[in-house]
């Protein structure tokens, strides 16, 4: 290994990647209030009003035309909080999900979340990434221990780059519900925890794992 031990930064380089465990579902707008009440009761900080978020997310894609089909392209998600302009931007890399494993209740994939300065979009363009799609997500988020629940409405941007309210158009008449945990590799008991939590939200919303590749 070149330069091993001479640079302190080596210690950070090969940090064990974190894994994201994910369950997704959706609920119609009309019944969203009931879900929010139930979540408020189940999750931490029941006495404060649920926290809202408004994020602008863009997905960048880098295509590799000479490698094997397995690594044809790589996606990076850049997320920025619209309601807190001074907060840093985030780059998220999500690996391929391991599917076919029936014993796992949740979708498990490698996850990297890096905070960065605000010139990240230009930087990715320089690197050769192209903007694939972008959207604005607004909603509420709750947390229970290390589990995070997001109830969000996705909006399409009619004009690329503009995020004011009048240029946004909701894509569906429902809210998307996501239950996720980011944890170091190898902790499989989280799946059980998440499944139990998801049971408590039935029949309002059914959270299950979706294979993203099989979606039409």
């Amino acid at each position: 290994m070149e330069g091993a031990g001479t640079s302190y930064s080596n210690a950070f380089r090969f940090v064990a990647p974190l894994q994201e465990h994910l369950l997704q579902g959706s609920i119609l707008d009309a019944h969203c209030e009931v879900l929010l009440h139930r979540l408020r009761g189940l999750c931490d900080n029941a006495d404060t009003t649920p926290e809202t978020f408004s994020d602008y997310e863009a997905v960048y894609q880098l295509k590799n035309n000479l490698a094997t089909p397995a690594s044809q392209y790589i996606l990076l998600r850049v997320r920025q909080a619209l309601d807190h302009p001074e907060a840093p931007h985030h780059i998220r890399y999500l690996g391929q999900a391991e599917v076919g494993d029936k014993s796992r209740h949740t979708l498990v994939r490698a996850c990297f979340d890096v905070a960065c300065s605000s010139n990240v979009r230009d930087f990715l363009n320089e690197l050769g990434f192209k903007l694939d799609h972008e959207y604005v997500a607004r909603g509420y988020f709750f947390h229970k221990g290390r589990m995070k629940v997001m109830v969000s409405k996705i909006y399409r941007m009619q004009q690329p780059g503009k995020t004011d309210q009048n240029t946004l158009e909701p894509i569906t008449q429902s809210h998307m519900v996501e239950l996720s945990v980011v944890a170091p590799m190898g902790q499989d008991s989280i799946g059980e925890e998440m499944k139990n939590f998801a049971e408590q939200l039935k029949p309002l919303v059914v959270l299950e794992k979706f294979d993203h590749k099989r979606l039409p």
Binding site: P17, I91, V114, C116, S117
Partner: peptide, 8 residues
């Protein structure tokens, strides 16, 4: 960025 960028 923060140090996780190396991993990225």
């Amino acid at each position: 960025a923060d140090t996780l960028f190396d991993g990225l």
